[in-house]
Design a protein around this nucleic acid. Structure first.
Length: 571
DNA sequence: AATGACGGCAACCGCTAATGA
DNA sequence: ATCATTAGCGGTTGCCGTCAT
């Protein structure tokens, strides 16, 4: 009855939609074909924009917002209708891992500011960046993508699956770790997210990587937000809940299998553990998460150990996000549509991270310090959660490498506390740095160790890290000059053990053509921009080419860059 | 066959950034 | 520099069809 009435008597706008006609009642609700025809006719005559004028000129009793939305989502040409293809599904997942809930950017329908268009011109002129065009999901609307994603979240949540597939998790974390070595600690992830600054470095250096293949290491600021987002979502009690409410196992299985079968198959092929993960999931789902998941791995079998590490990302999420409130708040901000119950937050700390560890982390965050002669002032994380702390940790490790600082002997640090915590996982050379470098090092160390183990087994067929304090693979790999090939084939976190500054340094010293091209690009920027951007970009780009040590400030400067760079919008 | 749950989708809402006067 | 207007984004809501019970 209600729907019939609604159809026959469409809702009338109460004025929220503009009331452009000074009190005229505007229609709400579903559009009719007649209204569509009117709108199409109007756009044909007057073009897009000035949507509030539609009502005046066409007699359509719809507010401007409604018209714009109808046109953008349904009537405009080149819209791609129908179900998402497998490729598009992949792309959405990847893009969301990188961008978060930036639906419009995924759909590539954002407009550019004048400044950004200058950059676009530059990009157009700079041949090596010709592939900058990041066509995201052409023909798809932000609404479509958003709906798809939200549906996917619900589905995966119900299925008890992690929001992001393992490979995406690992990739994002890997890139996040890379990023951590080049992004300043005083530039928090929130800034990055809020400034929408990921586009420029992303597209520019992706293109450089793709075209010239001269970048053994390509810093990608967006991946801060990537991992941040991923961890946030995974870390939220809602999305990482492995206790789906009152849903039959059979249905969960059906749904998990139904979700993008091709994708699931692909993931299984690439990451066999994913299958095991799924298999085990529902057998374990009946147990309380904090106790049964992560599952107790059999330390003697590579498979299960790697699986343990594989879920390390999840354990990380659970354990870490109980560490500080700011992060929790950030989670709220970034959550797509679904909120987690506030009351569950207090339980996070019990999931996989001991309170002592959390306290040590919080204490560290609140009182950054210098250790081993490594000045951490510029690296000190803001009190914005464990991600910053992890970034800080990674930076510290990098600095430690460069400074070859002396290790202090078995001082009692929060690492000791952490050592007694639940993070009693395999130890690697990370710990050797961590012992003296950061009070929270051990948590990060443990996490990285788990990640190493994860990649080693699941992705790169590397033997799992030994449960010993004996230094191994890290020092070896870090001493090598990492060519792109070497880095690519290296175990997951081995590149992390080799500080990015070293990578950059090696790469510059090898005389790659990048510095030369970079200079050209700087000149082009200065010529083209000719305004306040010029100096800013010049300085940050220039400093990037001069010294590997300057990666951090230079890349932090990207935070001030405009948001979008899309060749698709170029004339 | 009836009912309820769920998924998918379209549309709306509130807020903010961009733009122009 | 300030203010008003417009455009756009992300989150939310509600309708409707489908499916399971």
């Amino acid at each position: 009855m209600l729907s019939k009435n609604r159809k026959e008597l469409p809702l009338i706008d109460d004025g929220n939609c503009g009331d452009a006609d000074g009190g005229a009642l505007l229609k709400k609700g579903p559009w009719t074909s007649a209204e569509d025809a009117i709108l199409i006719d109007y756009v044909k005559k007057h073009g897009e924009g000035n949507w509030n004028a539609v009502q005046k000129h066409s007699g359509l009793f719809r507010c401007g917002k409604s018209c714009r939305l109808r046109w953008a989502n349904h009537l405009r040409p080149n819209l791609k209708k129908g179900a998402f293809t497998r490729e598009e599904e992949h792309l959405i997942i990847e893009l969301h891992a990188k961008m978060g809930n930036k639906w419009a950017r995924m759909a590539a329908n954002v407009k550019s500011s004048p400044k950004v268009k200058k950059i676009q011109v530059l990009v157009n002129l700079y041949p090596s960046s010709s592939s900058i065009a990041h066509i995201r999901l052409p023909g798809r609307t932000d609404n479509e993508i958003k709906n798809y994603w939200n549906t996917r979240i619900k589905r995966r949540q119900r299925a008890g699956l992690p929001l992001y597939p393992p490979e995406v998790c690992l990739q994002a974390l890997k890139e996040s770790h890379r990023t951590s070595a080049v992004s300043g600690g005083d530039k928090g992830t929130h800034d990055i997210l809020q400034n929408n600054t990921y586009e420029i470095p992303d597209v520019i250096f992706d293109s450089l990587k793709a075209n010239q293949n001269v970048l053994p290491y390509v810093p990608e600021l967006p991946d801060i937000s990537a991992s941040c987002m991923m961890m946030k979502v995974l870390g939220s009690s809602q999305y990482s809940s492995f206790m789906p409410p009152a849903i039959h196992r059979q249905k969960r299985l059906r749904e998990s299998a139904a979700f993008s079968p091709g994708y699931t198959a692909a993931v299984k092929n690439d990451c066999p553990l994913f299958e095991q993960f799924e298999d085990n999931m529902f057998d374990k789902a009946a147990q309380p998460f904090g106790q049964s998941f992560p599952f107790e791995p059999d330390p003697l079998t590579k498979k299960s150990q790697s699986f343990s590490a594989f879920q390390g990302s999840h354990a990380l999420s659970h354990g870490n996000f109980s560490a500080s409130e700011p992060t929790l708040e950030a989670v709220k901000l970034e959550l797509p549509s679904l909120q987690y119950p506030e009351t569950e937050l207090e339980n996070w700390g019990t999931l996989s991270c001991s309170s002592s560890l959390l306290e040590s982390i919080d204490a560290f965050i609140q009182s950054p310090q210098t250790t081993s002669g490594v000045v951490l002032d510029s690296l000190s994380p803001r009190n914005s959660g464990l991600l910053d702390a992890l970034l800080h940790e990674a930076k510290t490790l990098s600095s430690a490498k460069n400074h070859a600082s002396d290790k202090s002997s078995n001082s009692s640090t929060p690492c000791d506390i952490a050592e007694r915590s639940n993070f009693n996982t395999c130890e690697t050379e990370w710990e050797n740095y961590g012992e003296t470098l950061s009070p929270m090092c051990h948590s990060a160390t443990s996490f990285f160790s788990e990640s190493i183990s994860a990649s080693g087994s699941s992705l790169d067929e590397q033997p799992p890290a030994e449960t010993s304090t004996e230094p191994h693979t890290k020092s070896g790999s870090s001493d090598h000059v990492l060519t792109p090939e070497v880095e690519k084939e290296a175990p997951f976190w081995s590149d992390g053990s080799c500080p990015d500054t070293l990578l950059a340094s090696n790469w510059l010293e090898q005389g790659s053509g990048y510095d030369k091209d970079h200079t050209i690009m700087i000149d082009a920027i200065a010529t083209l921009l000719g305004d306040d951007l010029s100096g800013e970009y010049r300085s940050m780009l220039a400093v990037t080419t001069v010294s590997s040590q300057a990666w951090e400030p230079s890349w932090c400067a990207w935070n001030n860059m405009p948001a979008v760079c899309q060749m698709s919008e170029l004339p």
